[in-house]
Amino acid sequence: MSYIMSLMLFFSSINPAEALPSLIQKGKASFYSKKFNGRKTAYGERVSAEALEGAHRSLPLNTLVEVTNLDNQRSVIVRINDRGPFAKGRVIDLTYAAARALGMVSKGVANVSLRVVGKGRELAAFSPAPQFNTPEAFQSLLEPAL
């Protein structure tokens, strides 16, 4: 019993790893149903179908990820602002706008690759979340590359 408790304490103290630039992951992507529009994310932001955002299980909040649809080579940059997906075999959940940009709305699921392109600065907890509708909107969040 003490061995199990030790393992539980050890794993509960591990924080998500810092996002490594150019980290690549492949898998299936899905997108939020319209019923989630306006609901709160795991971080307290509201889901907006028109924002370029997504959910990942372990990448830190505000990580910027380039998502590429491997079937048609279309790409979009999304900001991670939620946890998920919780469906087996999925690596990322996207907003409707991101799914539309990738050309995956009609299929619902797409084979994608994820590449970390940057780590955004922390957003003030009390200010409303900015809208990220275009890749240029992310520029103010990017930290300078050293």
Rank of each mutant, 00 (worst) to 15 (best):
K28C: 08
A19K: 12
L114G: 08
P85C: 01
G108P: 11
E53F: 03
P85E: 01
R46T: 06
F11N: 14
Q73Y: 06
M5E: 12
K26Y: 00
L20W: 09
D71R: 15
L102A: 07
E53N: 11
L7R: 15
M8C: 12
F11T: 15
R46L: 01
Y96L: 09
A87K: 15
P60L: 07
A19Y: 03
M1R: 15
N69D: 04
S12T: 12
T41Q: 08
M1Q: 14
V109S: 07
M8K: 15
K28S: 09
A29H: 07
V105G: 05
L52F: 08
V78M: 04
S6Q: 12
L52Q: 11
G84Y: 03
K28T: 15
F10H: 13
V91Y: 06
A101K: 15
L59V: 12
S30R: 13
I4K: 14
S30A: 05
V109Q: 07
E53H: 10
G44L: 01
M104V: 04
A101S: 15
Y32Q: 04
L23K: 15
A101H: 15
R46G: 00
E53S: 10
L94E: 07
P85L: 02
V47A: 01
L20T: 13
P60W: 06
Q25E: 10
P60N: 10
A97R: 15
R100V: 07
D82K: 10
G44Q: 03
A42L: 05
N62Q: 12
V67M: 08
N111K: 14
E66L: 02
A97S: 15
I80V: 05
P16I: 05
S2M: 05
M8S: 12
F11C: 13
D82L: 02
R90G: 01
L114Q: 11
V65P: 10
K28P: 13
S6D: 08
G27R: 10
D82C: 02
A110C: 07
T95G: 01
I4Y: 07
S22N: 11
S22V: 09
L20P: 11
I77Y: 10
N15P: 13
K107N: 02
S75M: 10
S13W: 11
T63P: 13
E53A: 08
G38A: 02
L9M: 12
R74F: 01
F36Q: 13
M8F: 09
L7S: 12
G89S: 04
I80L: 01
I80N: 03
R90S: 02
L61E: 04
L7M: 13
A49Y: 01
P85S: 02
R57Y: 00
P16E: 00
F36A: 09
P21A: 06
R83L: 00
R57C: 00
A42Y: 08
K107P: 04
A19E: 00
M104R: 08
F36H: 14
N62C: 09
S2G: 03
I14V: 11
K26M: 00
P85D: 00
K40H: 03
L9S: 13
Y32G: 04
K40D: 00
S30E: 03
E18R: 14
V67P: 13
K35I: 08
V109A: 02
K35E: 00
L70W: 05
L102W: 10
Y3M: 08
K35F: 00
Q73P: 10
S22L: 06
G27C: 02
A87Y: 11
